[in-house]
Write a protein that binds this DNA or RNA. Structure first.
Length: 415
RNA sequence: GGAGGGAUGACCGAGUGGCCGAAGGUGCUCGCCUGCUAAGCGAGUAGGGGCUGUUGAGGCUCCUCGAGGGUUCAAAUCCCUCUCCCUCCGCCA
């Protein structure tokens, strides 16, 4: 949630920033300011009245009578205050984090600004296949059985592709640990507080699977369980850098009919995620650093890619700024997102009550950032970019030591 | 699933109706001392809201001892509900 005091001090700045996330955001902010004004009107009244109920020692008969009168009045005001607080909180829960000035204007994927391109789209002197076709001959990706067992957008990865995918995760984890990240295998079922705290509730609730019977929710990313790892805590040592590996679950509620082919967009996938707790003054640098790491990984995987700065209106509720890396997918003949890194500043930390003590003793909310290291999408990109005309796939050297076969499929005999 | 115990400040831990926002310890901050990344001595140290004020300050006040409700003039302390944690048994990867 946003810093209410800061918003009061400069509502115009907040509003004009929030407008870039959409009219709805600005409208919610206006309502929030009105609800807050109402609350501010009530609180001193309640305070004063409460003060009059404080007595030391045993009260006299006269004082008792006076107390009873005050309490009747107080009850009404307190009820009004509770209601005002409820209204304000409901709005506070929905107002998104204002975008950073460096996030470009716009509201859609197409409004993202390309920052740079590394490598050229792969060219082939034979008709290219997408990952579905490539997997077909060897049964590497079983979509039909996935659908039969779990429904559409669920897949089995089988054989060499399973090994390749695991190698990818192990590779990313290894590189991150080298860079000082602490490896974590987090829970994937979390409580409501974790979903709320990371900003997925209430805004993005439709995309979350719920296990109603137990009041638990399946994480759409380990960002949730990693952020919540320190919920309610006062951190001694920042920055803290974690590398989480987990399965992710997404309902893809708004994505009907979109990316339905293959395993590009599925309900369940695996991801190595970076998550950082840091200080306000270093979060921008930390964000650039996360992007740098993501690029290093993609470069080691030898994938052609571009980096885009996502438009303000296309950011989630908690992000102020987001970089996506889009790899070239020959099967789709376009750049598609394979990683994403966001700076959520103090938005999540405020909801999760994660703070840090300054040397002068002052407590301050930390900043949190997240970034994808690798997901199964990177594997699809590998399959499509490194195919040969016989339908086999060469695997980048970086993955060999992590158990990936050097080549998927049989090499065509040149008879 | 069954039985029992517990939830207090950054951490540990006292506290069974007003003298408690809370002993003591640890940690942390500052100072002193000490021939030195130790020990000792002294002082300070909960969070949040509102008003006022300052701009290397503070003052007044309200809320908070897991959460919510209740009893009472008065609750960390009594009652109810919920949540969570722990121990033992059962079950189980």
């Amino acid at each position: 949630m946003i810093d209410l005091k800061a918003a009061r001090a400069d509502p115009d700045a907040f509003r004009s920033a929030l407008v870039r996330k959409g009219d709805e955001a600005a409208r919610l902010f206006d309502e929030l300011m009105a609800a807050d004004a109402h609350w501010l009107e009530l609180i001193p009244q309640v305070d004063t009245l409460r003060g009059r109920t404080k007595l030391k020692g045993k009260p006299s008969e006269d004082e008792l009578e006076e107390l009873r009168r005050v309490k009747v009045e107080l009850k009404q005001l307190e009820d009004a205050l509770t209601e005002a607080e409820r209204e304000r909180q409901a709005l506070l829960d929905r107002v998104p984090n204002p975008p950073d000035v460096s996030a470009p204007d716009g509201f859609t994927e197409d409004d993202a600004v390309e920052i740079r391109r590394v490598g050229e789209p792969s060219s082939f002197d034979f008709p290219v296949s997408d990952h579905v076709d490539l997997a077909q001959a060897y049964g590497w990706i079983d979509l039909e059985r996935g659908a039969r067992v779990s429904g559409s957008r669920f897949v089995y990865r089988i054989g060499d592709v399973a090994l390749l995918e695991l190698a990818l995760y192990r590779f990313a984890l290894d590189r991150l640990v080298q860079k000082g990240f602490v490896p974590v295998l987090p829970p994937v079922l979390v409580r409501e507080e974790a979903m709320y705290g990371t900003g997925f509730f209430p805004t993005d609730e439709v995309n979350i699977y719920a296990v109603e019977r137990d009041g638990l929710f399946l994480v759409g990313t380990s960002e949730v369980s990693l952020a919540a790892l320190h919920m309610g805590e006062i951190l001694e040592d920042v920055p803290l850098r974690y590398a989480g590996l987990s399965t992710c679950f997404r309902r893809e509620a708004g994505a009907a009919g979109k990316d339905t082919r293959g395993m590009f967009r599925v309900h369940q996938f695996d991801k190595v995620e970076m998550f950082v707790f840091t200080l306000a003054e270093t979060s921008r640098d930390e964000h650039e650093r996360l992007l740098e790491i993501e690029e290093e990984l993609v470069q080691e995987l030898e994938l052609p890619y571009r980096v885009v700065n996502v438009a303000a209106g296309d950011l989630g509720a908690s992000a102020t700024k987001k970089y996506d890396i889009e790899a070239w997918f020959p099967g789709q003949e376009r750049w598609r997102e394979i990683t994403s890194t966001s700076n959520t500043t103090d938005f999540q930390a405020r909801r999760l009550e994660i703070r840090h003590r300054r040397s002068d003793g002052r407590l301050e909310h930390v900043h949190t950032l997240n970034g994808t290291a690798v997901t199964a999408r990177a594997m699809i990109a590998l399959m499509e970019n490194f195919q040969d005309d016989g339908g086999s796939i060469s695997v980048p050297g970086a993955l060999h030591e992590f158990g990936a076969p050097e080549r998927l499929g049989r090499v065509q005999s040149t008879a």
